Amino acid sequence: SYYEILDVPRSASADDIKKAYRRKALQWHPDKNPDNKEFAEKKFKEVAEAYEVLSDKHKREIYDR
């Protein structure tokens, strides 16, 4: 789930989600993982997609249904 990707509970606040996104984006940024760039790019995209949905109140409500 998007919550698992960002490592936050379903009850996470918008601020918690933003902090988790920043932490995970740094962790999986391809430039930070030169030895495993392809895998890092995949993870980085997953993190971005999760944040896009969970950071938008309307999209998150739909996702949580």
Rank of each mutant, 00 (worst) to 15 (best):
S1P: 04
S1E: 06
S1T: 11
Y2E: 01
Y2T: 01
Y2Q: 01
Y2K: 03
Y3P: 00
Y3L: 01
Y3C: 02
Y3Q: 00
E4H: 11
E4T: 11
E4L: 10
E4D: 14
I5G: 00
I5V: 14
L6G: 00
L6H: 00
L6Y: 00
L6N: 00
D7Y: 03
D7M: 06
D7P: 00
V8Y: 00
V8S: 02
P9E: 08
P9Y: 06
P9T: 07
P9D: 09
P9H: 09
R10Y: 09
R10D: 05
R10L: 08
S11K: 09
S11I: 08
S11W: 15
A12E: 01
A12D: 01
A12K: 02
A12F: 03
A12M: 01
S13E: 05
S13N: 11
S13A: 06
S13R: 05
A14F: 13
D15Y: 12
D16K: 06
D16S: 07
D16L: 08
I17F: 04
K18T: 14
K18Q: 15
K18L: 15
K19H: 13
K19C: 11
K19T: 11
A20V: 01
A20W: 01
A20N: 04
A20L: 01
Y21M: 05
Y21D: 00
Y21V: 02
R22K: 14
R23W: 10
R23H: 10
K24Y: 05
K24R: 07
K24E: 04
A25Q: 14
A25S: 14
A25D: 03
L26V: 07
L26G: 09
L26Q: 14
L26E: 15
L26F: 09
L26I: 13
Q27C: 07
Q27S: 06
Q27Y: 11
Q27W: 07
Q27N: 04
Q27P: 02
Q27R: 13
Q27G: 03
W28E: 02
W28N: 03
H29Y: 06
P30R: 04
P30S: 06
P30G: 05
D31I: 07
K32M: 13
K32W: 08
K32T: 15
K32L: 15
K32Q: 13
N33P: 03
N33E: 03
P34V: 10
P34M: 13
P34L: 13
P34F: 10
D35T: 12
D35N: 08
D35R: 05
N36K: 08
N36A: 12
K37V: 13
K37F: 15
K37N: 06
E38D: 11
E38Y: 08
E38A: 14
F39Q: 09
F39G: 07
F39S: 05
F39M: 13
F39R: 07
F39L: 14
F39W: 15
A40Y: 07
A40P: 01
A40S: 06
A40F: 08
E41C: 11
K42Y: 13
K42H: 08
K42E: 13
K43F: 07
F44S: 10
F44E: 03
K45P: 01
K45E: 07
K45T: 08
K45I: 07
K45Y: 07
E46T: 05
E46S: 06
E46F: 05
E46I: 07
E46Y: 05
V47I: 14
V47Y: 04
A48M: 15
A48G: 09
A48E: 15
A48Q: 15
E49A: 12
E49G: 05
E49K: 13
E49F: 07
E49C: 08
E49Y: 07
E49D: 10
A50K: 00
A50N: 00
A50Y: 00
Y51Q: 01
Y51N: 03
E52L: 12
V53G: 03
V53R: 03
V53W: 05
V53F: 04
V53L: 03
L54A: 00
L54K: 00
L54S: 00
L54N: 00
L54C: 00
S55A: 08
K57G: 09
K57V: 14
K57L: 10
K57S: 14
K57P: 15
H58V: 15
H58L: 11
H58K: 12
K59P: 01
K59F: 06
K59Y: 05
K59A: 13
R60S: 02
R60C: 03
R60L: 02
R60V: 02
R60A: 02
R60Y: 03
R60E: 02
E61L: 08
E61W: 08
E61A: 11
E61V: 06
I62P: 03
I62E: 15
Y63N: 02
Y63C: 03
D64N: 04
D64K: 02
R65N: 15
R65L: 14
